[in-house]
Design a protein around this nucleic acid. Structure first.
Lengths: 202, 202
DNA sequence: ATATCAATACCTGATTACAGGTAATTTTGG
DNA sequence: CCAAAATTACCTGTAATCAGGTATTGATAT
């Protein structure tokens, strides 16, 4: 029987080696390559693409989501499984939109990873249930698309004036959005907003 | 020959299992236990303490540094090796002060981890060289004690007025410090300061 | 000893943020 | 189609930040 060929991408060498050993301990898996950065993978041409790519979301420079899109375009037959430190709606949604096949936590057991891979190879999708909007308590999911956009620009250190220019809207509008963001997140300054965003890995 | 007994502590199950396999692949190492939190380890009483504890720095609630102090007090004969995602002066200094025996990156190879453990068991210390103050380029190490203190209060979302009250100094002084921090870090707003601090894991 | 740095404090003016409204238009979902 | 939500915009006043100085005192290091 042919083994399931796997490529790993994570910025930490120890994780790569650990994961490799976990997978290789089963006869059915074969880790054919691993990469410490998206760029290195992109510099490689697979003559026969692997059955599965295992990606971390948070890798420097080019993140896992972008890498997933690249992979899915270049090797449409390969599956992609995210293994991430943090499982939140933003990440899971982004992974789904990038056409990934699964998203699991680094908090999973080795057993669960193996099961997930087998399942994905049978064309199943493995995603955590998204937290319900209405029962959410962190306010983040109540933010509109525009508010999230402005939030990012505030974090980037831009003033309301510059944000207004960039989005071709009034400075008043930007400040209204800012106020609404603050209300929804129950905070009262940009500094607190930036803290909130970092805590939620945005 | 007696094997080197090891206990692992990390908040991610996959890392624990990977590390365990890496170490167990050599006959000389034996992972006798692993824990996903400091609390769980603290709830355990080792009749014969392990030769070595491998700790992550950033584990929730009770961090690795505090755990190291606890371990060194309760099991003085055991060694402690930190394996951390981020290697910076703050972390390394804290580890040294907590009487740890080594500090290596999660970016290390499996081979290097094993070598480090062997070395530590021979009473050597394994620490990265601290970045030289004068040749530092990130500006962080050029900050004075007072500036670092004020930086933390800014990040906590406090105004200059409140910081002044808290430190029993003038509001003008706080703003002078703020300006000097900005100059040294080459930034121009509190939002950028908070971003900088998060990027440097402060 | 003296030069450098840390910590302190003050001044001014401009800009920005924050809090508290109100309100019109458009989009979206049921 | 209609209600709710999103996006837009404006007004006012207060508070805070930011940028540009100057200057004194004490510690520290060569």
């Amino acid at each position: 029987m042919k083994k399931i060929s796997i490529v790993l991408v994570d910025d930490h060498q120890l994780f790569l080696e650990g994961m490799e050993r976990i997978l290789e301990s089963e006869n059915e898996f074969s880790v054919i390559n691993n990469f410490q950065s998206s760029e290195k993978l992109m510099a490689t041409n697979f003559v026969s693409p692997p059955d599965l790519f295992v990606l971390d979301v948070e890798i420097p420079v080019i993140n896992g989501i972008a890498l997933c899109q690249y992979i899915k375009e270049k090797y449409p037959s390969s599956k992609v499984l995210f293994v991430s430190m943090y499982v939140n709606n933003q990440f899971v949604r982004a992974a789904k939109e990038a056409d990934a096949d699964g998203f699991i936590s680094k908090n999973s057991s080795a057993q669960y990873v193996k099961q997930s891979i087998r399942s994905i190879l049978c064309d199943n999708k493995i995603f955590p249930a998204l937290i319900n909007k209405t029962t959410s308590n962190n306010g983040l999911l109540m933010l509109s698309k525009r508010e999230k956009e402005i939030m990012q620009l505030i974090k980037a250190g831009k003033t309301s004036k510059k944000i207004a220019e960039e989005l071709f809207i009034s400075e008043f509008t930007v400040e209204t959005h800012r106020k609404n963001i603050f209300k929804k997140l129950k905070i009262e300054s940009s500094v607190q907003l930036v803290n909130f965003m970092h805590e939620h890995h945005m």
